[in-house]
Design a protein around this nucleic acid. Structure first.
Lengths: 209, 209
DNA sequence: ATGAAAATGAACACACTGTTGATTAAATAT
DNA sequence: ATATTTAATCAACAGTGTGTTCATTTTCAT
C-alpha cells in the first residue's frame, strides 16, 4: 500500500514502545472492566502516555481493538501456513493430534493475556467469528465435501462444520480460563477424539453405539 | 422485594408499552450498529420516547441489556422447567430429539430478533455464557458423572461438557443466521446425533471408526 | 551534530450523560 | 364520571470523555 516501509511510524522505537504499552493496557483494562467501559483516557493513563499520543496511532478505541485482532490473526497465519495437509476430514488416528491444532494451542498459550481478554465476557463478540473462520480455512480447506456420501448422511451437511468449530473454540476458551494445565498436544488430541468418536464416547460413556 | 406489586411501574399500560418499544429499539440498533455504538439518545429517538423517560425505567443502557437478558433466561426457565428427565447422558436413540432441545429451538425462533442481536457480532459476549450455563443445568443436571467409567475415558472428563455446550450453541447461532429453515425437531435431532455418534460420523463421512 | 519523527501539554468545541423540577397526559380505582 | 395516582414530556444543568489543533520538547536515526 504505502510506498515507504509498511506503515506510518512503525519503525521508530518510540512508536513501537508506545503501541506495546497501549496493547498491554488494553488487555488489562478489558479484563478488569470490559471493553465497553474503557475510555481512551483510561488507556492513556494506564499506558502512561499522553492522551494525544493515542490519537497519533489509532482513530479510537475500536480502531485499536480491530488492529490488535488483525495482528493476532496475521500472526496465526504466519505460524501455521506451512502446516498443510492436516485436514480434519482425512484424520484417521485417534492417537495423533492434528499439527495445526497443536500449534493453535501453543499460540494461544503464548498470548494468553490478550486473547483471553478479547475472547472473554468483557471482550469482543465478533472476535469469536474471526477465530472460527481462521480455523475453518485450515481444517476444512477446499475439499470440503470430498468423501461425503449424501445417501448416508444422518444430518444436513451444513451443520457439522459450525458444530466442530464452536466446540473446538469452546474447549480452547475453557482451557484458557482454567489456567492451561494440559499440554497443547493433550488438548489437540482430546479435540480430535471428540470429533472423531463423538464427545460422549470419547469420554467413556456410551461406548455401546 | 417491594411491598406493592413486584416492580415499580410494571403494571401500568404505558410503562409496559414504553418498555416494549425500548426493547424493540434495542434489538434493531444492536443489529444495525452494535451495542457499543448505541447511545441512550439513540434508543430514545428510535423508540420515540423522551430521553428522560428512558431513565425512569433503566439506569443506563447496560442496565437495559442486563434486564432484557435476565428476562430471556427467566422465560426460558419457565417454558422448560417441566421437561425433566431429558438428560443427555441417558439419551440412547438417534431417532428422537431431546424435548428440552426442541423447546429451546422453538423459543429461539419465536424471539429470534432480540436473541440474534444479543448473540450476534455486535452483541454481548457474556450472554453466550449465560445461555450455555442454562443449557448445562438442563442437560447435565446433577447426575453428571453417573455411568462414567474413568478407566475407559479417552479424554479428561472436564472437557466434554464445554465441547457439547459450545457446539450446540454454535449450531443454534448458525441456524438463526441462516434464516431458521429447518424445524426445531430436525435441529434437535441433528444435535443429538452429532453428540452421540460424533459430528463426522453423523454427517456420513468416517463411518469406519 | 543535524534533520526527522514522536510525544507532550494545553486548549477548544462537541456530543452524550445523568439528574432535576415543573408541567401535561394518561391510566387506574372508587 | 371523577378523583387520584402514576407515567411521560420538556427544558435546563453541570459533568465527562471525545477528537482535533498547535506550539513545544524529547527522542531517534544516521
Amino acid at each position: 500500500m504505502t510506498t515507504k516501509s509498511m506503515e506510518k511510524g512503525s519503525g521508530d522505537r518510540r512508536a513501537i514502545r508506545t503501541k506495546r504499552m497501549i496493547r498491554t493496557a488494553l488487555a488489562e483494562l478489558i479484563y478488569e472492566k470490559g471493553f465497553n467501559n474503557i475510555s481512551v483516557t483510561d488507556l492513556a493513563q494506564r499506558a502512561d502516555i499522553n492522551r494525544g499520543t493515542f490519537y497519533l496511532h489509532y482513530v479510537d478505541k475500536y480502531d485499536l481493538l480491530e488492529k490488535v485482532e488483525g495482528e493476532i490473526i496475521q500472526e496465526l497465519e504466519r505460524e501455521t501456513h506451512d502446516l498443510g495437509s492436516g485436514n480434519m476430514l482425512r484424520m484417521d488416528s485417534t492417537n495423533e493430534p492434528l499439527p495445526f491444532m497443536v500449534k493453535l494451542f501453543e499460540y494461544f498459550k503464548k498470548n494468553a493475556a490478550i486473547i483471553q481478554a478479547i475472547l472473554g465476557p468483557g471482550g469482543d463478540p465478533s472476535f469469536d467469528r474471526k477465530i472460527k473462520k481462521f480455523i475453518e480455512h485450515n481444517l476444512f480447506e477446499k475439499q470440503k465435501s470430498e468423501g461425503l456420501n449424501p445417501e448416508e448422511a444422518l444430518i444436513s451437511e451444513e451443520y457439522f462444520i459450525p458444530y466442530i468449530l464452536s466446540a473446538d473454540l469452546g474447549v480452547i476458551q475453557h482451557w484458557l480460563e482454567k489456567g492451561m494445565r494440559e499440554s497443547p498436544e493433550e488438548m489437540a488430541l482430546a479435540l480430535a477424539r471428540m470429533s472423531l468418536l463423538g464427545p460422549l464416547r470419547a469420554v467413556g460413556i456410551r461406548k455401546d453405539i
